[in-house]
Design a binder for these strands. Structure first.
Lengths: 338, 338
DNA sequence: CGGTTAACTGAAACCGGTTACAGGCACCAT
DNA sequence: ATGGTGCCTGTAACCGGTTTCAGTTAACCG
């Protein structure tokens, strides 16, 4: 029953063996005779001994933990990300430290501090300065998740630009729409920046005039509601609202429906991410599917292997594919596309 | 520039002092002469020495970390919770370990494993078994967040029952509504269970017939969309949909608006939590405000002090007040109530 | 039967810090 | 001169594990 405060030496004394033997038994390393093993296991069992994590970590010079740094939590995207990362870490018996830098001015130093408590860190793109990333990378393996870091720091991200170009082209060509509004801050995150670039590229490749400046708002649902307020009351309202992610698109949808507009007849709305809810709302949201969980899992795996192997896994960047998901909110006929 | 692998003994050698002196300087404990301090600081500065966290933790028998255990991440409620907890922990220089038990059968043992790496744990209500909570509490300070644990394990939660009774009474009395549908699984989480109880209580105290059985769905927005599907196509549709939280309410709202219903004229919808977006949608969502962030921050504080002080802070439960927020979705005239 | 060799064991040295304790020294009061 | 008192400093013993290395024993081989 009791557990704490019993050490390996205590067990050794009780079993009448040396600490080395106890360690060997509890780790399954090295050779131990059946008799010794029995005695040790008995003592361990009787006292519910479990080796102390700190002692073990100190000896192994390994924390058995990985860190995840993000700007703030909002919406399904981040929750998927965290869960994907966490499940992969747990699989490797590593614990997960989180650091949420949002609105904290001293985040660089806190990230550095975190580096002293974990074996590797994943940092969401745009969360900390390149300089801090470099320092971080000099201490522990680092991977930038959904973004790119300075040279030498590997990254894992999804294809944004081409997918957004394809989506925008779909609206411009298939649906013949013209006045498209983009909602999102390109300078706010690398993801949005790439999506905005893809949006612009589609206009350019069709020799259309440059689109209006983006409506610089956050990525949360309430920002979408705000966007709807601004875009749908001003004249002339755009024909389509291209949102930087699904959450804002949902917000715009709620805002549009709430003021009596029909989607897609009166206004077209598109998102990005393919959050679970996007398939369920009516009209279904046309969007781009991004393998968020897999992105995070891959990041976790890279960090874990990098922290195990002394050899450098190489700063290869990983780019996961995305996929255009056509539903009804763009004006295409409603389907049961999940 | 360089940093790793330099130890306190190395600094001591370089500065020509003893390790004790280095430790004293780097910790600011004990008396050190100006000359010694200068020499040590110089060496520390020159080599960018920062004491190793593991060594320090082992010596102090303190991890400098706290854990947060939750079933899964979904929506603003959980993200607020995490962020509230995290900011308070960071303030105390503690790192935050997360464990997401969702759909994992061996979560009890993983929680116990976590206990060996942190100084205290916060567990969301309903996440792990009472038995596991007891074992956990025998190792480290534990607080149940948003729920109650077994005897001896303190909890921090918000007032649910009375608030839900008040909200329900409002619908029944002020608006004269009768057929109310409740959306949420009372057995899924302690919060929902209490809210369902409050919902029932309002009916009972007005001598009305018992309400229909709850529509047992999850707490995410897509569950609300599903709820709308089931409730609004069946005959007779309820007059009001009382949701276990704001997210499902938003889902129901989207579902209702999507099929051309007007809210609140055709159907009344209410939520619980007062998520940021609930004030922004149109119609504004009538709901109950819950101090989620403060709940989590208080939890973090209790854990941190409990792990500092050897003295038991006492298993006093904390119950934070909630507040009914009347907006437009219940049928009250629209206001600018934020 | 002597010599290898393999299997097993334990003492002691780590990992990188903190800290109890004792010793040295300067200064002061007898 | 002597004893006492503070202040500073360093030695060494922790914290709780792992691991190297040398030593013992027994089995095996020629």
């Amino acid at each position: 029953m009791g557990n704490s405060r019993i050490t390996v030496r205590e067990i050794a004394r009780l079993a009448g063996v040396s600490v080395a033997t106890v360690s060997r038994v509890s780790n399954g390393t090295g050779q131990v005779s059946a008799e010794m093993r029995r005695r040790v296991l008995e003592a361990i069992e009787a006292h519910g001994y479990r080796p102390d994590h700190l002692g073990r970590a100190l000896a192994a010079r390994k924390h058995g933990a990985v860190g995840l740094v993000f700007p703030g939590l909002s919406g399904p995207y981040f929750t998927e990300l965290i869960q994907g990362f966490e499940s992969e870490a747990v699989r490797a018996q590593a614990s997960v430290h989180i650091l949420c830098t949002h609105l904290r001015e001293d985040s660089d130093s806190q990230v550095l501090e975190m580096a002293r408590r974990v074996d590797g860190v994943a940092v969401l793109g745009g969360t900390v300065s390149d300089e801090a990333l470099r320092q971080l990378a000099s201490r522990v393996p680092v991977v930038v998740l959904a973004g790119v870091g300075p040279a030498g720091v590997p990254s894992v991200r999804a294809e944004n630009t081409a997918a957004m170009t394809e989506l925008t082209r779909h609206l411009l060509v298939e649906h013949g729409l013209r006045r498209l509004a983009f909602v999102g801050s390109p300078d706010g995150s690398p993801d949005v920046s790439e999506r905005w670039a893809g949006f612009q590229a589609a206009h350019r490749e069709l020799s259309l005039p440059d689109p209006d400046a983006p409506l610089r708002l956050g990525l949360q649902q309430q920002d979408g509601v705000l966007a709807a307020e601004r875009l749908l009351s001003g004249q002339p309202a755009p024909e389509a609202v291209v949102c930087a992610n699904d959450e804002t698109a949902l917000g715009v949808l709620v805002g549009a429906l709430g003021r009596g507009l029909r989607v897609p007849q009166d206004i077209v709305i598109t998102g990005f991410d393919d959050a679970p809810i996007s398939a369920l709302v009516s009209p279904g949201l046309t969007t781009v599917r991004q393998p968020v969980r897999e992105l995070a899992a891959e990041t976790a795996r890279r960090i874990l292997t990098a922290s195990d192997d002394p050899i450098d896994g190489g700063p290869e960047d990983v780019l996961l594919p995305t996929e255009l998901v056509i539903r009804h909110s763009c004006g295409c006929p409603a389907t049961d596309n999940p």
